[in-house]
Design a protein around this nucleic acid. Structure first.
Length: 519
RNA sequence: GCCGGAGUAGCUCAGCCGGUUAGAGCGUACGUCUCAUAAGCGUAAGGUCGGUGGUUCGAGUCCACCCUCCGGCACCA
């Protein structure tokens, strides 16, 4: 059986996830569910990144043991992902022993082949933070968190990874695998970077307790990327379950934010080369969800709570909005006005209303049941064209195109009803066969719509399929069979209250904090 | 400063390798059906495609310069 291993970036546990973070998980989930719908054995991994001095400090501030703090954050994250319908198969935390084993194994392997060596790292060091600071992070030469103290220029012995050694191999990989990093504009940036040369990177810090010790130098803990990136391997058994690792590695797709594509497209592949492991097949760098024109950020007051959004209409409309309205790979704006607009148009007026129209007509004209009659109108052809466009979009990670294709079938079905006017046919006994055919076609189009929407709106799809009499359980439906027109059988059509009531009253918008004027 | 991206109808955006009257959705105006969630369907108005100058038989689509906005420029997840 074909398999697909998909990951998102693991998240820093500094606060509850905002809509921007949720966007990444939702789009990845759409891909995962799409692959499953295609009958592919899909393994979808997410997780939390817990080793960081910031996390450690935050826990201390709250008077918590860091592990305890991370446990609490895990629960919060899991709760949000659960409410958004994220169907991950595994959730990895970097403090888990399986992760520690993998990091140490890769570090050891890399060390053995001579890719990790002792060196000196220099920089501004804030004593209170117990961490090095970048020049750009300092405000007037001071640590923004501890402005009372002047940072010190410190030279520390730690370990470096020979990133520079892999420059040519990485360049060759980019040349030979033009789809390795998407969107392609990102790949161009990376190639430029590689041509310009690579510097070795520091991969450890001395004198810290919160982290994974280097196996060959236990007074050093592994630093940031050399820890976090390895989650993709540790989650599938590297260092703990070789058989499992062999069956799942390499990853087919890493979904990450565009800001960290470099680490996934340069550092991570180099680490894998050093450890003698295969590279992931593809990395996709998505854009930001902006709010008020700005990237979501708690400190700027430009963040939106995904749970708050989903409490209005449910998680499905939010998922649809994010997938359909934002070109995957580009930035996209979230506004409450536009969100409500799309909800009303796509879901209340078009798809939801279509479902109601069908149910009412079938109840009135056909005793709640539709049967295939042989002759069909234009919908089978439209449906097959839509299926092709849908698949093309999803396969190419143009998720917005896949989603848009489904709604082309919704539109065509509403048009078809207007063109055939079943209410007129119903008054003409001689047109009974025609009427039956029209009603069946509409029901069948809706059934296909329900199937195609499974990855995007899983809960709503289940309800749509129930109402149009699809009896196969959701997880048994397969795109290549059930996404095609079925010109046979008869089905009960369930009449029920509107799936998405029109939102006529404006939502009371949550207070938007004015972003502070930056001086 | 360097590199890259973007600037197309009121709004949000499509426009691949240059080719007939520049597209979609929403919004607006008008018309229309009545099965439906005052939803559906149809028609129309609306754009000198950031600016200037080029290449070309022909440019939103290529080139140069300029203006505006955004991102990246490496140890920050």
């Amino acid at each position: 059986m074909a398999r697909f291993y998909l990951t998102t970036a693991i998240d820093y546990v500094n606060s509850r996830p905002h809509l921007g973070t949720a966007y990444e998980k939702i789009t990845a989930d759409v891909i995962a569910r799409y692959k499953r719908l295609c009958g592919i054995d899909t393994h979808f991994v997410m997780g939390n990144d817990e080793h960081s001095q910031n996390v450690f400090r935050r826990a201390i501030e709250l008077g918590l043991d860091p592990h305890e703090y991370c446990n609490q954050m895990e629960n919060e994250f899991r709760e949000v992902w659960g409410k958004l319908g994220i169907s991950f198969n595994d959730f990895i935390r970097t403090t888990e022993s399986r992760h520690k084993a993998a990091v140490q194994k890769i570090a050891e392997t890399s060390f053995q082949v001579g890719d990790i060596y002792e060196g000196y790292y220099e920089g501004w060091y804030c004593i209170s933070c117990e961490a090095f600071k970048q020049e750009k992070d300092l405000v007037e030469g001071k640590c923004p968190l501890h402005a009372m103290l002047s940072p010190e220029w410190i030279r520390e012995k730690n370990y470096f990874f020979k990133l520079s050694k892999y420059r040519e191999r990485l360049l060759a990989h980019f040349e030979q695998n033009p789809n390795f990093l998407q969107p392609s504009s990102r790949a161009n940036e990376i190639v430029q970077l590689l041509r310009g040369g690579l510097e070795d990177i520091s991969v450890s810090r001395a004198g810290q307790s919160w982290g994974i010790p280097l196996p060959f130098a236990s007074d050093n803990v592994v630093y940031v990327w050399f820890d976090a990136l390895i989650n993709y391997a540790s989650a599938v058994g590297y260092g703990t379950d070789g058989e499992r690792f062999t069956s799942l590695w390499p990853a087919d797709l890493h979904i990450v934010g565009k800001d960290i594509t470099r680490f996934h497209a340069v550092v991570w592949p180099a680490m894998l080369m050093s450890a003698g492991l295969a590279l992931p097949r593809q990395v996709f760098g998505h854009g930001w969800v902006t709010f008020g024109g700005q990237r979501m950020s708690k400190s700027l007051g430009s963040s939106v709570d995904p749970i708050e959004v989903s409490e209005h209409f449910g998680s499905d409309p939010l998922r649809l909005y994010l997938v359909k309205e934002i070109v995957y790979g580009n930035d996209g704006e979230f506004t409450w006005d536009r969100y409500i607009e799309r909800y009303n148009v796509d879901l209340a007026n078009n798809l939801g209303n279509l479902l109601s129209r069908l149910a009412a007509m079938v109840a009135k004209y056909s005793d709640g049941r539709v049967s295939a009659s042989g002759a069909s109108g234009k919908l089978p052809k439209v449906a097959s064209e839509v299926l092709i466009r849908y698949k093309a979009g999803m396969e190419a990670l143009a998720l917005h195109e896949g989603a848009a294709a489904v709604f082309q079938l919704v539109d065509a079905t509403n048009e078809f009803i207007a063109e055939t006017s079943p209410w007129v046919l119903a008054k003409q006994p001689e047109n009974a066969a025609k009427l039956a055919s029209v009603l069946f076609d509409v029901a069948e189009a809706l059934r296909i719509i329900g199937v195609l929407l499974i990855p995007i709106m899983p809960s709503a799809s289940a309800e749509i399929l129930r109402r149009v009499g699809e009896t196969t359980p959701l997880h048994d439906l397969k795109l290549d069979d059930d996404g095609c027109w079925r010109a046979s059988g008869s089905r009960n059509i369930v009449a029920a209250s509107p799936l998405w009531p029109r939102a006529n009253n404006p939502i009371i918008q949550p207070e938007i904090n004015e972003s502070k004027e930056k001086s």
